[in-house]
């Protein structure tokens, strides 16, 4: 066991995979000498050399495009995009190419690449660094989308992502990069992609979140002080999401609140609610409530806290559903 926060869990996961498979390479801006702007690749270039932990030119489209080429020709690239705000340059590469390599080549070529990127607001970062775009990437068939919320899952999901035969976006919650410490195994383990995690059992209400919002939900539940019996689900994978766990819970509780920090319109809650409506409508005691950010560009630091879902808004959402 080793005590680790989320950033360190990324480093452990990368180190494990670099050591295991010589075809794994880590590439991105400032990931080598500097060890990444968040130090997620700290020390790895020293350990594995500049051919395997690679400082690239400043070009996100280049990083992802080249990773596709590396992946189709036998390598296992783990690309870092410095902030999720810079994922839209390579969006074309992800959508038009990475997601379709298997389909268009009828399985002759595959694209086992991982793109890691820190996302999420709440740390007073510069504008355009922190948006939550998980539903945009989940609207691309052929890409998997993973969002861990704690160190244990981070290492386990990262290992699973690197071994996955298809492209995976690995969204790291920047806000809680260093906020949570856990004992995590030094030996290899996996957290499967596509499996949600029931963090707390409950029978009155289902509360669903992912990434940095899981911690905010936990804080809300602490404040709620067992007033209701809440089942807390950490979705962990956005695409393909774990409908089975979600539906089983909602069928049991009949009430549901979904929290995400992406804006409301076309946020991933919409997809979850549609699936609840399709498969568990008659089990519902109340309309599902979404606690999300409003439909505006993420404001600069000064107004960030008005934008993001917080404990009070989550409690308000819970009360709304419970008192329906």
């Amino acid at each position: 066991m080793v005590v680790s926060n989320i950033v360190q869990a990324v480093t452990h996961g990368l180190r494990q995979e670099l050591a295991r498979d010589k075809n794994v390479v880590v590439l991105g801006e400032d990931v080598g000498v500097n060890g990444g702007v968040f130090r997620a690749t700290d020390g790895l270039q020293k350990e594995f050399g500049a051919d395997r932990v690679i400082d690239t030119p400043l070009a996100e489209l280049g990083i992802v495009g080249a990773s596709i080429g590396l992946a189709v020709n036998g390598m296992k690239p783990v690309a870092e995009i410095q902030f999720s705000g810079f994922m839209y340059g390579p969006f074309d590469q992800l959508l038009s190419h990475a997601a379709r390599v298997r389909m268009r080549s009828r399985g002759r070529f595959t694209c086992p690449l991982v793109v890691r990127t820190p996302y999420g607001a709440g740390i007073r970062a510069l504008e355009l660094h922190c948006e939550s775009g998980e539903s945009m990437f989940s609207n691309i068939a052929g890409l998997k989308m993973v969002v861990p919320s704690n160190p244990y899952d981070t290492k386990g999901l990262l290992a699973a992502a690197i071994r996955d035969p298809d492209p995976v976006i690995f969204y790291e919650p920047m806000r809680i990069y260093r906020a949570i410490k856990q004992d995590i195994p030094e030996k290899e383990y996996f957290v499967p992609i596509g499996k949600a995690n029931v963090l707390q059992e409950g029978k009155d209400l289902t509360l669903i979140a992912w990434g940095a919002m899981v911690k905010v939900c936990q804080d809300a539940l602490e404040k709620l002080n067992n007033k209701y019996s809440v089942q807390l689900i950490d979705l962990r994978t956005i695409n393909p999401y774990d409908a089975e766990t979600v539906l089983a819970s909602v069928k049991k509780t009949g009430r549901c609140v979904i929290v995400h920090e992406a804006i409301r319109t076309c946020g991933f809650a919409a997809e979850l609610i549609a699936s609840i409506n399709e498969k568990a409508l008659l089990n519902l005691e109340a309309p599902v409530v979404r606690v999300t950010s409003p439909d505006v560009p993420l404001p600069f630091a000064k107004l960030e806290n008005y934008f993001l879902p917080d404990v009070n808004r989550i409690l308000k959402g819970i009360e709304k559903v419970m008192s329906f």
Partner: peptide, 26 residues
């Protein structure tokens, strides 16, 4: 300090119905 309503004011020339609802809620 900036008025929190400020974040809604400059997105479109005219606020969308969704934004109006969200602003009120928030």
């Amino acid at each position: 300090a900036p008025d929190p309503k400020d974040m809604f004011n400059y997105v479109f020339a005219e606020m969308t119905p969704q934004q109006k609802e969200e602003m009120e809620e928030l």
